[in-house]
Each structure stands twice: as structure tokens, then as C-alpha cells.
Design a protein around this nucleic acid. Structure first.
Lengths: 215, 215
DNA sequence: GTCTATACTTGGATAGAC
DNA sequence: GTCTATCCAAGTATAGAC
């Protein structure tokens, strides 16, 4: 459905001389979702922020919903790249909490999770948007699951399956973003991460006090 | 700002012969928020569901946003009443998880938390709505805190303040509602509650094995 | 006091100019 | 291929009928 290239160029980038209207629109869509929410992300609002005519949205993306999905794809891709790099240098649970705290702070500042939240909440109002958004949640789940698995390992897998924990973590992440975004008080959420750090340290002290691992 | 009574009657109810247009509108607003989301809750959509002329919204509530806030007040009041009754007959942590599970299932079916989620997410798009919604979150926090305090008591309060735990629980609750509502799969969320039940049982076994309490 | 008919504004989408 | 002018539907809000 969505058009693939901007020009007849063979390369994947949109390298025509028009300075990438597509890219500008996607960037403006992200900004508008963050600042005005889903309900405020009209074609005119987004185009105004991008400094282009609103008709271009329908030329490049066919509909506003498609543009918003492209915006969600864009943030997801950026975040997953960043997350993946961060998670690879994590060993212990408390290190995981440290990384998670830093990432959460970044996401809050940049408003990346706000985009996701608005798209999920907004999906109720546009027919067909729900499944599309749902499909794009996959990377977030699998990233969280990978983070849990690589740090906690199969240690607590029998009592707490990594997939279930990942689901809860994503849900908590979304909820904390909502609350923080609503009242602008990030201290409450960050306080929770501080407590998690303590619990992680406690967990490390309890678990495998002797090096019981097979090569 | 909002009009208080419907007629010049002395009683608090709207007891005029008009069969309660206000009430019908509030009910329709709740249903519309659940089904169509914030972005889909226009004056026309709500009035259509209520079977009344859309102009009545502005007569009775001055604006759509005010009607939506009244709808949020209505669900909050109902839920708090129900929650309060349920929490009073809870003693142990695992009982708390049982009650929380039942309540979560109810909220999912009835869509009460969906209303809250949509209002929080939608607050970004309407100037002034954020603080109004934020103010209405107070009861949810204090209920969660009360639930945590009465069951876990001051036992783990030093390491995990009840207020912080309550904040996290509300956030998790909102996030689970979003995800469940999005893909219609409530098994994932309910599975988490099952794990919480196990952990609660574990906690009970560990904590205060001897009756160490002062009268 | 309650409600309806109507005015005006904003939003989605496209035909056609460049 | 890129963009603008324009159309029509949907939204908010109110003047005035009952």
C-alpha cells in the first residue's frame, strides 16, 4: 500500500533534490504525536510543523494513519538499535537496572515512548490501526525478553517465564511513561528504578553465592 | 464552571421529567471512550450514542472535554466504591492478589480502565485537560497505597515505601490494560497475576514465620 | 430550563496545475 | 514526480424556538 521510493532512483534512500519531504513529514509526525497526542495529530498540524502543504501527506503516505505508522516504525527502529547496543554490555541484574534507568530517562526526554503510547491509545479510534500497531510491538517484547534472559538467565525461568516478565516490563514502561508525561513529575518513576536497583543487588547477594555453572 | 443542577428542584438528583439527559450523556461518553477512544469521542459520536441532539452537550457541560471529565468522575466513583469494599475483606498478600485479579478481570470486561487510559493519553491534545485528569488520579493512587499498606503492612516499608509501590502498581495496571485492549489477548496479563499469586505465597512462607506482633 | 436548527471552523482527501 | 487549490464531511459552538 505505502509507496516505496520517492524517486525513480535505484538506491533505497530518497535522494531526489526535494530534500526529503517524506523524511520531514515523518519527523514532524513524531514531534506532533509527542506534543499534541494522537487526537491532535491531524494532517494540517503535522504538515504545518513540517513546513509543507498538507496534501503531501496523502501523496506520500495515502492517509494520516499510514504516516503515523511510519513515524512509529522510525522511532522503533532507532530505539531498538540503541537498546540492542546497550544490552550487550550488561552482565548483572543491577547493571541491567542501571541501563534500564538510563534508557528510561532518555526515552522520557526524547518522548519516544510517548509516541508508542499515543499510537496504542489512538488505535481505538481508527479502524484497522489496532492490528498494525500491535504488530509493531513485537520488537519491544522480544528486546525486553532478551534483556531478561541474558541477565537473569534460565535461573528463575521455571517460576517466572522470561516472556511473561518481558510482557510485564513493557506494560510497566508504558504506564510509567503515561503517568510521568501527564503530571511532568519524573521523580516518582525514577524513584521506582532506584528501588529496583536495591532489589537487584539483594537478588545478586542471594542467588548463586558459589560459582555453580557448567561450561 | 459546570452547571450543578438540572432543574430548580431542591434534591440533588436530576429529577425533572426529561429522563436525565445529563446521565444519558455521561453513560454514552463512557461507552464512546471505551469503543472509539479519545480521538473518536466527538460531540456527534457521543450524542449519537445517547440518542440526543449534540447541542445538548454544550448546554449541559459547556464543552466536550468537560463531559469527558464528568464521565471519568463517574467511573472513578463507581470503581472506588467497589474497590474499597473488596479491599476490606483482604488479609494476606495472596488474598490481595486474588482480589486484584478479580478486579482486573472486571475492569477489563467493563472497560473502566480503558476510559482512564484514553483520558490520560488524550490529555495531550486538549489544553488544560492534563491537570484536570491528573487531579482525578489521586483516588486511584491512594486506593492502591491503602491496599498495599493494609496487607503488607509496615513490614517492607523501609526498603519499599508503600507510596512508591502504589505508583508502580497503578502504572502497571494502566500498561496492562493498554496492551490487553490492543490485541484482545487477556491471557498474557492474567498470566502475570497468576505468577504474582505464586510470589505472594512464597512471601507469606518467608515472612514472620513466628507470630511476632505487639498488641 | 430544555432542546433544535443553524453558523462557522477544522479535517481528510483529490483533481489538476506546475 | 511534486505540489497547490479546492471540495466536502465532520467538528465545535450558539442563537433562538419551545
Amino acid at each position: 500500500m505505502a509507496k516505496s521510493g520517492t524517486s525513480s532512483s535505484v538506491v533505497g534512500r530518497d535522494s531526489s533534490r526535494s530534500a526529503g519531504t517524506r523524511t520531514k513529514l515523518i519527523e514532524a509526525a513524531i514531534e506532533t504525536l509527542k506534543a499534541e497526542g494522537f487526537a491532535g495529530s491531524s494532517a494540517r498540524a503535522i504538515a504545518g510543523r513540517a513546513g509543507v502543504n498538507q496534501g503531501l501527506i496523502f501523496y506520500h503516505f495515502d492517509s494520516v494513519a499510514n504516516l503515523l505508522l511510519a513515524a512509529l516504525d522510525s522511532v522503533s527502529a532507532r530505539r531498538m538499535e540503541h537498546y540492542g547496543a546497550a544490552i550487550d554490555r550488561v552482565g548483572s541484574p543491577s547493571e541491567l537496572v542501571d541501563v534500564a534507568t538510563a534508557i528510561f530517562r532518555e526515552d522520557l526526554d526524547a518522548g519516544y515512548v510517548a509516541v508508542l503510547v499515543e499510537m496504542i491509545a489512538g488505535a481505538s479510534s481508527t479502524p484497522g490501526l489496532g492490528p498494525a500497531v500491535s504488530a509493531r510491538l513485537g520488537p519491544w517484547f522480544s528486546f525486553a525478553e532478551r534483556a531478561v534472559t541474558t541477565t537473569l538467565g534460565p535461573t528463575l525461568d521455571p517460576v517466572l517465564p522470561a516472556g511473561d516478565v518481558a510482557y510485564g516490563i513493557v506494560a510497566l514502561y508504558l504506564g510509567l511513561e503515561m503517568l510521568t508525561h501527564l503530571d511532568g513529575d519524573r521523580a516518582r518513576a525514577l524513584g521506582l528504578f532506584a528501588h529496583a536497583k536495591n532489589l537487584a543487588g539483594l537478588l545478586e547477594a542471594l542467588a548463586v553465592p558459589t560459582e555453580t555453572r557448567q561450561p
